[in-house]
Structure formats: structure tokens, C-alpha cells
């Protein structure tokens, strides 16, 4: 991972008790000046997810690099937690494989250090791992964000951290230059949506359907409604949950999304490769090929519906 020297420096010099996170400085919306993630959505973005270390450290490095080679604009890397309550069976199994192969939070950051990709990285994990990270007795949350910033991570997604509980993490992300991505569900509206959009930065993760993660054959029809509710907010909208083909990606972008997030369909490839003892190169080639299809789908979707300026 190419280091962002400026960011690391600002992390080191930051006041340890600078931000208590009670109020977001730019409450009008994300700070457009500095977000690498936001810039990644200049054209319809393909945002793949894999669990880091699935099924083992070395193969997983190769797989993530294959996503980048296949055209990923942002990569979401899962840091496995033992109780992944937002995940369906596919990613639950990935979490089990990765944990059994010895993945830990510190090992995760070593993984990021070892990755040879130029694509911005987002860490997706559960709050307890963020909360517990760091030497015993250290203040919670800050050490994780510091370590993530030092590793060159651009943003965090925390599925079990709703906006109501996020101020502490939001504060440290602001201070240390990370984006904090929130998930907007089909059920999110009104004041809740507004509270969340005040705190989101980088991009907003639009959950295409109720339920847990997992590849589906059909597309959800709740996506358009959610995208409509988000129209007034000036932050890229990436749609995930259930997208598995180029056709899905095209349809989602044509419906107004700025990008597509794909996890389980890619994890399925890793799982099959692991079960069938396929060589890592073959699995990587398959991942790269599906990535190309998804990226091409997203780009095609943008051509189908010319989008108005500035979205």
C-alpha cells in the first residue's frame, strides 16, 4: 500500500484529546476537499469486498490484488469479527476461514501494509474490535483509527454502529483524516436519515434490501426509493447487498447509483476455490474476470441514463 505521508504526520501531531466527537465540524456534509474515497466515484465505481486473510494470508493478498487489476475503484477489506450479525452465510464462512487461519486486527494491518495496490482501501469491521484495539488501559477507539491511518486505510464501515453511537469514532476519524461510511437501509428515512447524512463521509453505503449480505439472482426494487431519498445529499451513493453480475451493476447505476458494492459473489469464488483446492492463480483470475464484468456493467449503466451535472 502506498503510504500517504501527510496523513500519517497529521495523525502523529494530533492533540490526543482534541475531538470528543460530540459535534461534526462540517455539519453541512462531508468535507469535499480531502476525500480520496469521494474522488474514486468520479466515474461509476466498482467497490468489491473480500474478507482479509480468507482463506489464508498469502492467497488473500493475491485475491485483493486481482480485484484491483480487474478495475476496482475502492476496495472494502473485511476485518473478521467472531459475531458478524449483519452477514449472511457466505461471508460468515469467510470470517470463519480467515479467523481459523490466524487473522487478528494487528495481522490485518500487516496485511494492508503488504498489499501492492494503488486503490483506496476501506476497512469493514465490527465495533468491538475497534473498541478493544490497543494496549491494555489505553483509551478506546483512538488506537485503532491511528493504526488504520498509519496503514494508509482511507475509511471505515462499521455495520453494528448506528449514527447514534458513532460520535466518538467520527471524532477520531475527522482528527486523523479517515472517512466514516454509513449504511443506509431501505427502512432509513426522515430524521434518522438526516442524522446519518450529517455524519457520513467518503460515500454512503446504500443497502439494497432488508436482511443480511449475500448474492442474489434478482435485484431489489427498494433501491430506487432509497436513492430518491438520498437525492438531496451531495455524497456518492454506492449500492450493495445482493449484486452479483454485470447486469445487476448496470441496472443499479442506471437507477442513479454512483457505484456498486459487491461482496458475497466474490467471496463465493474464494470459497469454491478453497473447497476444490484450486491454485490461487486460478481463483485470482476468476476474481479479476468477474471484477471486469462488474466494472463494465457499472460504466454501461451510466451511459444508459445520462445523469444530471454534479451527481
Amino acid at each position: 500500500m502506498s503510504r500517504d505521508g501527510e496523513r500519517t504526520e497529521s495523525a502523529a501531531s494530533a492533540d490526543p484529546r482534541g475531538t470528543d466527537g460530540s459535534e461534526r465540524a462540517d455539519a453541512d456534509g462531508p468535507d469535499a476537499s480531502g476525500s480520496t474515497l469521494e474522488a474514486a466515484f468520479d466515474e461509476p465505481a466498482f467497490v468489491p469486498y473480500l474478507a482479509a486473510g480468507d482463506p489464508d494470508f498469502e492467497s488473500s493478498l493475491e485475491y485483493v490484488e486481482a480485484l484491483a487489476a480487474g478495475g476496482a475503484d475502492v476496495i472494502e477489506l473485511g476485518l473478521p469479527f467472531s459475531e458478524p450479525i449483519a452477514e449472511g452465510p457466505t461471508i460468515q464462512q469467510a470470517v470463519v476461514r480467515s479467523l481459523e487461519a490466524g487473522m487478528t486486527p494487528e495481522r490485518f494491518f500487516e496485511f494492508v501494509d503488504a498489499l501492492d495496490v494503488e486503490v483506496p482501501l476501506v476497512c469493514m469491521t465490527y465495533y468491538n474490535l475497534i473498541y478493544q484495539f490497543g494496549p491494555a488501559g489505553s483509551e478506546p477507539v483512538r488506537p485503532f483509527v491511528e493504526r488504520a491511518a498509519a496503514a494508509g486505510i482511507e475509511g471505515l464501515v462499521v455495520p453494528d454502529l448506528p449514527a447514534e453511537e458513532a460520535d466518538l469514532l467520527r471524532g477520531y476519524c475527522d482528527e486523523l483524516g479517515l472517512d466514516l461510511v454509513f449504511i443506509v437501509a431501505p427502512t432509513t428515512a426522515g430524521d434518522r436519515l438526516h442524522r446519518m447524512m450529517e455524519r457520513v463521509s467518503g460515500y454512503v453505503y446504500v443497502q439494497a434490501r432488508l436482511g443480511v449480505t449475500g448474492a442474489r439472482d434478482d435485484l431489489s426494487d427498494s433501491t430506487e426509493g432509497t436513492l430518491e431519498r438520498l437525492e438531496g445529499y451531495d455524497v456518492p451513493k454506492a449500492v450493495g447487498f445482493g449484486i452479483s453480475t454485470g447486469e445487476h451493476a448496470e441496472a443499479v447505476v442506471a437507477a442513479g447509483a454512483d457505484g456498486v458494492i459487491v461482496g458475497s459473489a466474490l467471496v463465493d469464488i474464494v470459497a469454491r476455490g478453497h473447497e476444490n483446492d484450486e491454485p490461487a492463480e486460478a481463483v485470482a483470475a476468476e476474481l479479476e474476470s468477474l471484477s471486469r464484468e462488474l466494472k463494465a456493467g457499472a460504466v454501461a449503466g451510466a451511459k444508459r441514463t445520462p445523469r444530471p451535472e454534479g451527481t
Binding site: E164, T187, T188, L210
Partner: peptide, 10 residues
């Protein structure tokens, strides 16, 4: 507190 996925919050 309430540490749950957003879909459950409403």
C-alpha cells in the same frame, strides 16, 4: 446503548 445494523434501527 444500541449497537445494531442500521436496518434494525427504525
Amino acid at each position: 446503548g444500541q449497537y445494531v445494523p442500521e436496518a434494525l434501527m427504525p
